[in-house]
Simulated assay, not measured.
Amino acid sequence: MAPSATHQISTVATDLKKDVAVSKQPEVHVHGGEDKTPLEAISHGPIIMEEHRRHILIHMAAVFRDFSRKGFTEGMSGHISVRDPEFPHYIWMNPLGKHFGLMTAGDMICLDYYSGKVVGGNNLAQMYTLFVMLTQTQVVPDICYLYDSIAVYASYGGIVFAAEEGENIAAALGPKNKAAILLNHGLLSVGSTVDEAGFLFGLLDRGCTIQLQVEAAMRGNPDLKKHIVSDEEAAYNMKMASEKNSLYAEMQPDLEYEFAMAGEGVIEKGVDGMRIWGDAQE
């Protein structure tokens, strides 16, 4: 730009400063979206909760089949519970008496965990399991990896028919634990997704098996020595593998295997007919 041009611009700017009074009134910014959740506000389109729910239910069924293949079945006992993506006080879980290896997305039921009322799906609820889940679903929304995050619950009181047992287990888990060993009962895991919780459950079960094998081997051969991973190394490994999406990805090879073994459309069977009816239906 020529010198004369810059001089003219500078002169105009100086003259404007003399004639214009600068307002000191505070600026009010209207952002919009105050009536939306953060996810809705940043989205470029509507959130398709039905697709999110469909994904959850299909993967939930696949995790059940994976559990069956790994031997995590015991008669009618055992369950997986997942928070509904649209209604945070609703949870999806498996029906009583359905074998894990035959589970499909359409088998799941939806419960209001405040009242215990069935609000979606078409099967009878596993009521005693609901009591366990009431507090756990609220207290442990998001937790990290297994190092320094395994609780031991030593006060198992038998089959759960009251909310107190769920509250006690939730208290044992605390704000950071993601898994628990329930003495004289079994294992428990939680996660941000059913995929994450399923992977951690298998990880903990295999860890317990290896520990027992090591202890048995040492009793048979006193010359064997344990080589325990240091706290620093364990903490580093936990940090590198603690992200919930990473744990979700860890489970996908097993689930892909289950989808392939079941055949196209088998695990997904019935999912398109799943609905939330809430209080509209008794």
Results as ranks from 00 to 15, higher is better:
Leu224His: 10
Tyr257Glu: 05
Cys144Ile: 13
Gly166Met: 03
Gly220Thr: 11
Asp223His: 13
Ala171Tyr: 06
Glu268Ile: 04
Pro88Lys: 12
Leu57Tyr: 00
Glu164Gln: 15
Gly120Glu: 01
Val20Phe: 04
Gln138Asn: 10
Val28Gly: 05
Gly78Tyr: 03
Leu247Asn: 15
Ser192His: 10
Lys36Ala: 10
Met60Asp: 05
Met238Val: 12
Asn221Met: 08
Val229Thr: 15
His7Arg: 13
His99Trp: 14
Arg54Ala: 02
Leu247Ala: 13
Arg219Glu: 11
Lys70Ser: 05
Lys24Pro: 06
Gly186Tyr: 02
Ile276Trp: 01
Thr14Gln: 14
Thr137Lys: 02
Cys208Gln: 11
Gly121Ser: 01
Ile47Val: 03
Ala234Thr: 12
Val140Lys: 02
Val194Gln: 00
His44Thr: 14
Gln211Glu: 12
Tyr248Thr: 08
Gly265Cys: 05
Ala197Glu: 00
Ser23Lys: 03
Tyr156Trp: 07
Ser23Ile: 03
Tyr153Met: 09
Met218Asn: 08
Phe64Thr: 02
Ile228Gly: 03
Met238Glu: 15
Ala235Thr: 15
Leu130Asp: 00
Arg206Phe: 08
Glu164Cys: 14
Ile210His: 05
Lys178Ser: 04
Leu146Ala: 09
Leu146Arg: 08
Ala62Thr: 02
Glu165Asp: 08
Tyr248Val: 07
Glu164His: 09
Ala61His: 04
Ser81Gln: 04
Val194Cys: 05
His52Trp: 07
Met218Gly: 11
His7Leu: 14
Gln126Asp: 02
Glu250Lys: 12
Cys208Val: 11
Thr129Val: 07
Gly278Glu: 07
Gly157Arg: 01
Gly186Ser: 06
Glu74Ile: 06
